[in-house]
Amino acid sequence: MGELRVRKIQEFIKQEVSRIILHELKDPGLGFVTVTDARITGDLREATVYVSLFGSDEEKANTLTALKKAGGYIRSEVGKHLGIRYSPQIAFKEDSSLDYGMKIDKMLQDIEKKD
């Protein structure tokens, strides 16, 4: 599969999942979510969507559970709009890079205050 096509499909999945979460999901367990990235296998059968979650640990767990429950619906909606033979199986994973970046930034600010 062409690398350019795979990258385009990854970007489309990222945008489409963001749109679905924002406008179509009505689960009360769903907290504040930002889709940060999407990765798809070369055969276009499995996709991993990375999400940044905000709130307490319990709220994050509830949000991730709500996303996993809605996975079938999200898969079918993405498949309708994607226009390829098979809809990829979508798995959600938490992206903690923002938390890590904020932690590093706080440490740098603390060091700067000491000097």
Rank of each mutant, 00 (worst) to 15 (best):
T41V: 10
G72W: 14
V6P: 01
L53T: 01
L25K: 04
L44K: 00
E46H: 13
R5N: 05
S56M: 11
K60D: 04
D99M: 11
A91R: 07
K103Y: 12
L108Q: 06
S18K: 05
Q15T: 14
T41Q: 09
N62V: 10
D95R: 04
D27N: 11
T34C: 05
V49F: 03
R75I: 02
R45C: 10
I20Q: 02
G79M: 04
I20N: 01
T48L: 07
G2A: 12
S96G: 12
E46W: 13
I90F: 04
L82D: 02
L53K: 00
M107F: 15
L67H: 00
L4H: 13
L22S: 11
A61Q: 03
H81T: 10
I40M: 02
L53V: 04
L22Q: 08
K68Q: 11
E3I: 08
M1Y: 13
K68W: 12
L67S: 02
I84N: 04
A91T: 12
G29A: 10
D37E: 09
D27H: 12
G42M: 12
K68H: 15
D105F: 15
P88D: 00
R85T: 09
Q10C: 10
V17A: 01
I104Y: 14
G101M: 07
V33N: 00
D105Y: 15
K14R: 14
E11T: 05
E58S: 08
T36F: 06
K68D: 11
